[in-house]
Design a protein around this nucleic acid. Sequence first.
DNA 1: ATTCTGACTTGCT
DNA 2: AAGCAAGCCAGAA
Length: 138
Amino acid sequence: MRIEYVEAVLAIVRLVPAGSAVSYGDVAELLGTGGPRQVGAVMSHYGSGVPWWRILKASGQAPEGHEAEALRHYVREGTALKGAYEAYLRTGEGSWRVDLSAARWAPGDEDFEQMEAVAGELARCLRKLSVADDGMSA
DNA sequence: ATTCTGACTTGCT
DNA sequence: AAGCAAGCCAGAA
């Protein structure tokens, strides 16, 4: 995992406002590089410093192993939820999910600008690196 | 080079 | 709703 890629992912995550969320696949798409699993890998290893709970599975399920903490954030931020989350808060039992159809982040014009800047910079770095690789193999 | 693994997704049961 | 298989992208062994 290139450090440039990690930084790009984290930059996108920081743009997601409280109360909303996007899927790993969404981030990958915005980035234009890699896939959902790459984004997941970045969050797994480097996500502790950003609002990681705003990035989740396309199904709306919180990241494995962090459901309880994520739910606290959702409730505090007023993120749209569906299912028996209240019961989960009390007993730790029951299934619930983020209602992505309602909470999914809709980037504004300024957001697009920043994302484009991030994606562009990443693309530039990766292009440079691939050129270097070609040089090595030749 | 090959195989395994994973904070993923989608489609099918 | 829940489980499963396949597809997917990359890093690690």
